[in-house]
Amino acid sequence: MKASWNGKVIAESDQTLVIEGNHYFPPNSVNKEYLTASDTHTVCPWKGTASYYTIEVDGKINPDAAWYYPEPKPAAFPIKGYLAFWKGVEVHH
């Protein structure tokens, strides 16, 4: 699977985990040069508190377009640190 935005591959892995229709990419498969930590946090009742990254590619900014669970609840422990994408980021084969 690949996650692409603005013509660049943000993440690529054949070992994503799919939860609720979202592909979560292993941390070592993500090009962190395109990510900046965000102050945004949301809470999922069963996964826990999510943290976000803003994606920046060639001067274009996509705020809070990637999220991850740094300390997920036990039911979601397999996705600890894995990143998922939305807001126009294409996830495809």
Results as ranks from 00 to 15, higher is better:
1 M>T: 15
1 M>H: 15
3 A>E: 09
6 N>V: 01
6 N>G: 07
8 K>F: 03
9 V>T: 13
9 V>A: 08
11 A>F: 11
11 A>N: 05
13 S>T: 12
16 T>I: 08
16 T>M: 09
16 T>A: 04
16 T>C: 10
17 L>N: 01
18 V>H: 06
19 I>V: 11
20 E>N: 03
22 N>C: 02
22 N>A: 02
22 N>E: 08
23 H>W: 11
23 H>I: 00
24 Y>T: 00
25 F>L: 08
26 P>C: 01
26 P>E: 02
26 P>R: 00
27 P>Q: 11
29 S>A: 14
30 V>F: 08
30 V>I: 10
32 K>M: 13
34 Y>T: 11
34 Y>V: 03
34 Y>M: 04
35 L>A: 00
35 L>S: 05
39 D>S: 14
39 D>P: 06
39 D>G: 10
40 T>L: 14
41 H>P: 06
42 T>D: 11
42 T>G: 08
43 V>E: 11
44 C>H: 14
45 P>E: 15
46 W>R: 12
47 K>S: 09
48 G>E: 11
49 T>F: 05
50 A>P: 08
52 Y>D: 12
52 Y>A: 13
53 Y>A: 01
53 Y>G: 12
54 T>E: 14
56 E>S: 13
58 D>T: 02
58 D>R: 09
59 G>A: 14
61 I>A: 09
62 N>S: 10
63 P>T: 14
64 D>F: 10
64 D>W: 12
64 D>A: 05
64 D>R: 03
65 A>N: 12
65 A>Y: 05
66 A>C: 05
68 Y>N: 02
70 P>H: 07
70 P>Y: 12
70 P>E: 11
71 E>W: 04
71 E>F: 13
73 K>V: 05
73 K>C: 00
75 A>V: 12
77 F>D: 15
78 P>W: 03
78 P>G: 04
78 P>K: 07
81 G>L: 06
82 Y>A: 01
83 L>P: 04
85 F>V: 02
85 F>L: 09
85 F>K: 01
86 W>K: 06
86 W>P: 07
87 K>I: 00
88 G>C: 04
88 G>E: 00
88 G>S: 06
89 V>R: 04
90 E>K: 13
92 H>P: 02
92 H>I: 10
93 H>V: 12
93 H>Q: 09
